[in-house]
Design a protein around this nucleic acid. Sequence first.
DNA 1: GCATGATAGGTATCATGATAAATAAGTGTC
DNA 2: GACACTTATTTATCATGATACCTATCATGC
Lengths: 152, 152
Amino acid sequence: MFFLKDLPSRQMIERYTAQYDVEPARIAAGLETMRRASVMIRRLEAYFAEHGLSQLRFLFLVVIDREPDHATLTVGEITQRLDVAGPVVARTLRALLDAGLVHARKDARDARTKHIGLTAAGRARLTAVLPGYFAIIDAQMTTPLDPDSPSP
Amino acid sequence: MFFLKDLPSRQMIERYTAQYDVEPARIAAGLETMRRASVMIRRLEAYFAEHGLSQLRFLFLVVIDREPDHATLTVGEITQRLDVAGPVVARTLRALLDAGLVHARKDARDARTKHIGLTAAGRARLTAVLPGYFAIIDAQMTTPLDPDSPSP
DNA sequence: GCATGATAGGTATCATGATAAATAAGTGTC
DNA sequence: GACACTTATTTATCATGATACCTATCATGC
């Protein structure tokens, strides 16, 4: 995460980057992107926490839900879609199973493979959370970057 | 962090947001911002780890370094500039002290207050790390968002 | 001078994402 | 049909950011 409250001014960036072969405007844009995203992500995590989820758990449900062909995905397919490391997916899966938001079914032919699908509760939770999710993103994207930099 | 590899298409966003009062374009922009920032931050953390730092440790050094008036900042001033919670600052301070990158001096008048400054090693580390930092941000901002989404 | 509250900073504990390595079940190869 | 090889998933452990709560020192009112 990127938690520098006051981003460096353009001048400061130019002073810092003068000696290196980079474009100050792109650095400024990069810092702004990281800062805005960090604030937005923190905001979203707080929102998800209120609903017994986290951003990753939410996305885990989303990738299953949005699959056009099948109602289920294997753990490996979920891992591919979510680029996080396998162990994180395994732990998240456990949490969602414990919460009853997904179900697992063993593959008939390959005993290593599990197929994961949404339960009714999982689909309901997703539906309940989506409006707030979009609202927060929308709000964060329309808010100026420094809502609270008092510059004393 | 936001680790959905394939962002939803505009169509999918419109389908999802149709029932809610939000602007699909802003949602798309928000998701892109989070995704790009997450990838960039992960990249930067890996870079910092190679140099015995983390993004937060780096920013900790930066806020001290860029202070125009004083060579030192109190822990509270650092906490204000980095919007992370106090305990995170305390732990980071400990790590930087152990690494010899900053030094602490007690305040003469208020025994609660500590003044933190960069050591020569700290300044050197910062100087060593900056070019790569800018290079990574520059590169990430010029790269298309999906460098590895094979869509099989 | 000493109770009361405010301020500076820290400890303890939890969730999340990372890496390394283990288990365990398929797939050859000879 | 046993040995190596790959694939699927999990366990163990670490770093980071969060919250809740604690300690120590200062400032004030009486």
